[in-house]
Design a protein around this nucleic acid. Structure first.
Length: 188
DNA sequence: CCCTGATTCGC
DNA sequence: GCGAATCAGG
C-alpha cells in the first residue's frame, strides 16, 4: 500500500500528536509496520516532535556490517499474520483484565485498549488478584508461585499473589512485567 | 523481555 | 521512495 496524501496527513497528525511509531502503524492498519512509519517520518523530515521522548543523541558508534538483506530469488509475500496472542487464562479464574489508569505504553497499550472495552466492568480492582480462597501466605510460597507482595507487609491482610509462575521466575506473568517495567521506565 | 526511535541499504 | 533488518537506548 502506498502513501496516499490522506495517509500521510494522518501520519503527520498522529506523529505530532505524540503517538509512537507502532501506535501509528496500528492505526493506519495492516500492511503498515512501525518501521514503515518511522521510515516515512524521516523522509518527511519530521523527526523531532514536541518532546524529546527519550531518543538518545544518536551517536553513530559502529554502523559497520549492516550490508545484509534477504534476497533468495523468491519474493513471496510473508503474509503478515497477527501474532496478537491473548495472554493465557489461568485455571479457574474469572476474566479479569483491569488496567484502568495504568500508564502502559505503545502497542501494548493500544492492544489492551481494544480488548478492554467490555472486560473492564467485570473487575474494578487495581490488580488482577486472586480471590481470598487462593491467597497464600509466606509459607505457601514455592518455586512455582508468584511472590509478588500484596498489601502492607506489616498488616494482617498481607499476602502474596501466588499465581503460577514459570519455573525459575519469581513472579507470574503479570507481575514479572511490573517488576522492572511499566511504572517508571523513564528515570535514570 | 518489551518497547522506543534511528540508520542503513537492497529493492 | 520504500521499509526490513539492525542498531542503540531505556
Amino acid at each position: 500500500m502506498g502513501w496516499t496524501e490522506e495517509r500521510v496527513e494522518l501520519l503527520k497528525k498522529l506523529w505530532m500528536e505524540g503517538l509512537s511509531a507502532s501506535q501509528i502503524a496500528g492505526v493506519l492498519g495492516e500492511g503498515v509496520t512501525r518501521n514503515a512509519v518511522i521510515g516515512k517520518v524521516h523522509r518527511l523530515k519530521l523527526s523531532g516532535r514536541s518532546k524529546p521522548a527519550s531518543a538518545a543523541p544518536r551517536v553513530r558508534t559502529t554502523p559497520r556490517t549492516p550490508a545484509r538483506r534477504i534476497s533468495t530469488g523468491a519474493s513471496a509475500a510473508p503474509s503478515a499474520p497477527r501474532p496478537m496472542g491473548t495472554g493465557g487464562s489461568s485455571a479457574g479464574m474469572v476474566k479479569q483484565r483491569t488496567m484502568v489508569s495504568a500508564p502502559m505504553q505503545g502497542a501494548t497499550a493500544l492492544k489492551i485498549a481494544e480488548e478492554m472495552e467490555q472486560e473492564i466492568e467485570i473487575a474494578p480492582q487495581a490488580e488482577p488478584f486472586v480471590p481470598e480462597a487462593n491467597r497464600i501466605s509466606l509459607l505457601g510460597l514455592n518455586e512455582h508461585t508468584c511472590k509478588w507482595p500484596i498489601g502492607d507487609p506489616l498488616s494482617a491482610g498481607f499476602y502474596f499473589c501466588g499465581q503460577h509462575s514459570e519455573d525459575g521466575k519469581p513472579y507470574c506473568e503479570f507481575h514479572a512485567r511490573r517488576a522492572y517495567h511499566q511504572v517508571d521506565r523513564k528515570k535514570r
